[in-house]
Computed example of a mutant assay.
Amino acid sequence: MQRRDIAEMLLLAALWGASFLFMRVGATDFGPAALVFLRVAGASLLLLPLLAWRGEVGALRAQWRPIALVGVVNTALPFALYMVALLVLSAGLASIFNATAPLWGALIAWAWLGDRPTPLRGLGLALGFAGVLWLGIDNASLRAGSAGVSPALGIAACIAATACYGWTANYTKQRLTGVPPMAVAAGSQAFAALATLPAALWWWPATLPGPTAWAGAAALALACTGLAYLLYFRLIARVGPAKTIAVTFLIPAFAVLWGAMFLGERLTPTMLGGCAVILLGTALATGLLRTRRSRPAGSPAP
């Protein structure tokens, strides 16, 4: 990776880490339904013109059905689940659960596609989900907070969201291989906006938030979603998906940092230990961390 690639990966991790901060604040101001719509609609306004400028609208038109499904399962549904979770969980804790998305991708590939993991990757799956269980048991209070959501429900929402990401990764591999990434990114955001519009209208806040809340929603939509997608797919094109997925390991660090700086959130020893176990399991399960014996002869260390 060149210096520019590393800089863009750090920027991408910072943006996606900040998204948990903006979701945590904005979900209270707007409500989950309205904020999800604002996020995906704003990202669509940025990505669709770029798609047209690249001359790839035809790819979206040809594959609109699977892209629409990706928009619902990979964007609208998990975004809504995280909005609910962040009513009661800290941004740092939610981002740690988000880091399990590659684990779900590997597990679903095994169950659905018959992609049986090696013993080392199987160990990674076990370690990763053990970390999830550790964090869940430590934080899963059933007492509802002021928003009517309990920490246990928030954790379940995070896990359901990451399972959506894991399922979509395998579905995209099956149905959308060869489709221009920008068509998938822009189209999925546009269809997610259509899917979330009715709920946003129904639960639109009776009293509109102030300018600061709207600025946060704009940053979430344009920077943490639209710009982040551009960086993500550009990194995939330049350095490949195997290296780009390493951004997953950086997001919790930035989310914890932003949460501590702007919301006064605290990193507990259990969060730190659970995060370490989850990231180690993810590194093994995705093949980013391999023993010398598991690498082909003559291949460089990852």
Results as ranks from 00 to 15, higher is better:
Thr168Lys: 02
Lys173Asn: 15
Trp16Ile: 11
Leu127Met: 13
Leu123Phe: 12
Leu48Phe: 14
Ala111Trp: 10
Leu197Gly: 06
Gly264Asn: 13
Pro78Ala: 07
Leu113Cys: 04
Leu120Phe: 04
Leu120Ser: 14
Arg24Gln: 13
Leu120Met: 14
Leu272Thr: 00
Gly124Asp: 03
Gly273Gln: 13
Ala94Gly: 13
Gly259His: 09
Ala43Pro: 03
Leu35His: 04
Thr100Pro: 06
Ala301Ile: 15
Phe129His: 04
Leu51Phe: 08
Ala144Ile: 08
Ser188Thr: 03
Gly298Met: 04
Leu50Ser: 01
Val70Tyr: 14
Phe22Cys: 02
Pro181Gly: 11
Arg4Val: 08
Ala297Gln: 11
Pro180Gly: 13
Ala206Val: 06
Leu176Trp: 10
Val73Lys: 02
Gly31Ala: 13
Pro205Met: 02
Thr28Ile: 04
Gly42Lys: 03
Ala7Gly: 13
Lys243Gly: 01
Leu208Asp: 06
Ile137Val: 15
Leu197Arg: 02
Ala157Leu: 03
Ala185Phe: 07
Arg65Cys: 01
Ala152Met: 15
Tyr165Gly: 10
Arg293Asp: 02
Gly55Thr: 09
Leu267Val: 15
Ala260Met: 00
Leu48Met: 15
Pro296Phe: 04
Tyr171Glu: 12
Ser150Asn: 07
Thr28Tyr: 10
Ala34Lys: 05
Leu103Glu: 12
Val25Thr: 09
Leu69Val: 14
Cys224Lys: 01
Arg65Asp: 03
Trp167Tyr: 14
Cys224Gln: 06
Ala144Met: 08
Ala52Ile: 10
Trp104His: 11
Ala80Tyr: 15
Val72Gly: 03
Pro102Gln: 07
Ala228Met: 01
